[in-house]
Amino acid sequence: MIDLAAYAGLFSAAFIAATIFPMQSEAILVGLILTDRYPLAALLLTASVGNTLGAGVNWLLGRGVERFRDSRWFPVTQEKLDKAQAWYRKYGKWSLLLSWIPIGGDAVTVAAGVLKEPLPTFLLLVFIGKAFRYIVLAAITLGVTG
C-alpha cells in the first residue's frame, strides 16, 4: 500500500520551499530516503514537481509584480529583483537552471515572470535544475549511508 501522506508531505514541503515561505524540503527528502520504504524515483519526482510548481507561484508573482511589489509578503526586495533581472537579461532563460540556489534562486524565478518568460519553457528549465539538485542530494545521502 502506498503511503500517500508521506508523498503529500514531501510535495507540500517542496512546493512551499519554492515560494515566499521558509521551508526546507531537503531534510524531509533525506528522511524519507533513509527510511528505505519508498521508491527513490517516486520521491525525487514528487519533490521536483512540488518545487517546480512552487516556483511557478513566483513566476505568477513576477507577472503581477506591479500589483504586489510593495506588499510586505512579497518574496523579493527591489534590490534583489533588480539584480535578478540583470542576471536574467544577461544569461536569459538558462539562468533558470540555477533556480534552486538558496540565494537568488527565488528572485530569478520572479524575474522570469517579470520578463515574461513563456510558462512552458520556465517550467521545463526550472524542473531540470530542481530535479538535478534533488538527485545530487539523494546521491550524497545514499553515498554517506552506503
Rank of each mutant, 00 (worst) to 15 (best):
I2G: 06
D3S: 15
A5C: 03
Y7T: 01
L10C: 10
L10Y: 02
L10N: 10
S12L: 03
A13T: 07
A13M: 11
A14N: 05
F15H: 06
A17Y: 02
A18W: 04
F21C: 03
P22L: 05
Q24D: 08
Q24G: 15
I28V: 12
I28P: 02
V30A: 07
G31T: 00
L32V: 13
I33K: 12
L34Y: 00
L34E: 07
T35Q: 15
R37G: 07
Y38I: 10
L45G: 08
A47I: 11
S48D: 11
V49Q: 06
V49F: 08
N51K: 08
N51F: 02
T52L: 04
T52K: 05
A55D: 04
A55S: 08
A55V: 05
V57S: 03
N58C: 01
G62Q: 07
G64D: 07
D70M: 01
D70H: 00
S71F: 10
S71Y: 00
R72H: 00
W73N: 01
P75T: 07
P75D: 12
Q78Y: 09
Q78M: 07
E79N: 08
E79M: 12
K80F: 08
L81H: 05
L81I: 08
A84H: 12
Q85N: 13
W87M: 15
W87S: 12
W87G: 07
Y88A: 10
Y91K: 12
Y91G: 06
K93I: 10
W94L: 15
W94K: 10
L96G: 05
L96Y: 08
L98I: 06
L98V: 13
P102A: 10
G105T: 12
T109D: 03
V110Y: 04
A112R: 14
A112I: 10
V114K: 03
L115Q: 12
K116Q: 13
K116E: 14
P118I: 11
F122S: 14
L123I: 04
V126I: 14
V126E: 10
F127R: 11
K130T: 07
R133K: 14
R133D: 11
Y134R: 01
Y134N: 13
I135H: 13
V136A: 14
L137T: 14
A138E: 06
T141E: 06
V144I: 14
